Simulated scan of single mutants.
Amino acid sequence: MKKIAFEWYAIIEGCFLVALGFFFLQSSSLLIGGTGGLAAITNNLYEISLGTWFFLINLPFFVIALKQMGKSFTFKSIVSIALVSVLSDALSSMIVIDVIPLWLAAIIAGGLMGIGLLLVFRNGASLGGVNILALYLEKHYGIHTGKVIFIIDMIILTIAFQVYSVEQVLYSVIASLVLTSVIGRYHKKAPISQLQPKTDRLKSRFKRFRLFSK
């Protein structure tokens, strides 16, 4: 119970940091890659709220999560996305920032979201869409999460040129670079020994024991 409580506490912390990052982006009319970027672009065209679009766009990806990543991962991810959606809209309604340099907003948002995603990742959850795909590719093919997120982010930011100005997109790229830099430095893939089946690990240890005993 204590372990589960700490996991959820960390997930809630991570969701709050990501939502705070969204707030800085939204306050500066910037965006980030992934489903968050798609939500911002869609909300710019059909305004409801960023949080609502973020939740709706992520829903289809839970089919992949349920089939490939398990029920526990899917449940935690759905709760995490719901939290980020609610917190993003709540922060936007409670706090107003009149003036902030775009470069500063990009760095703050990218850093906050990067740390928040790490907390969510390390406790067996995701924030949907691109993150689920990234974790799936890392688990099955060993491709680092940071690389997958960066490539897809750049694709979405390229689409953003249709809605945002060149200056806004360029500063948004800075936010994505900061975010992926944080994840790339601190998100470590599971050691190979931990990914091996338990019987294989026991066999390898037994072989080493026999070698040392000779």
Rank of each mutant, 00 (worst) to 15 (best):
L87W: 06
L87D: 04
L87V: 11
S88Q: 06
S88N: 05
A90P: 00
L91Q: 09
L91H: 02
L91C: 00
S92T: 10
S93K: 13
I95V: 15
V96D: 08
V96E: 12
V96K: 12
I97Q: 07
I97V: 14
I97Y: 08
I97C: 05
I97W: 12
D98G: 13
V99L: 05
I100W: 06
P101C: 06
P101L: 08
L102M: 15
L104F: 14
A106E: 09
A106P: 10
A106H: 09
I107Q: 09
I107P: 05
I107G: 09
I107H: 10
I107E: 11
I108W: 03
I108A: 07
A109V: 04
A109R: 08
A109E: 05
A109G: 12
A109D: 05
G110V: 09
G110C: 07
G110S: 10
G110N: 07
G110F: 06
G111A: 15
L112T: 10
L112Y: 09
M113W: 02
G114W: 04
G114R: 04
G114A: 10
G114H: 09
G114L: 05
I115F: 13
G116I: 03
G116S: 04
L117C: 11
L118D: 04
L118I: 03
F121W: 01
F121K: 00
R122I: 02
N123D: 04
N123Q: 12
A125Q: 00
A125P: 02
A125V: 00
L127S: 13
G128H: 11
G129M: 09
V130Q: 11
V130M: 15
N131H: 13
N131T: 11
L133D: 07
A134S: 14
A134P: 06
L135M: 14
L135K: 14
L135A: 04
Y136H: 13
Y136G: 08
K139T: 00
K139C: 00
K139M: 05
H140M: 07
Y141Q: 13
I143Q: 04
H144T: 14
H144A: 13
H144L: 11
T145G: 03
T145C: 09
K147V: 13
K147I: 15
V148H: 12
V148N: 12
V148W: 04
I149T: 11
I149H: 09
I151Q: 03
I151D: 01
I152R: 06
D153I: 06
M154S: 14
M154T: 14
I155H: 05
L157R: 04
T158I: 02
T158R: 01
I159A: 06
Q162D: 05
Q162H: 08
V163F: 02
Y164V: 02
V166L: 13
V166G: 01
V166C: 03
E167N: 09
E167R: 03
Q168S: 15
Q168V: 00
V169T: 12
V169K: 04
V169M: 03
L170G: 06
S172D: 10
V173G: 01
V173D: 03
I174T: 07
S176W: 01
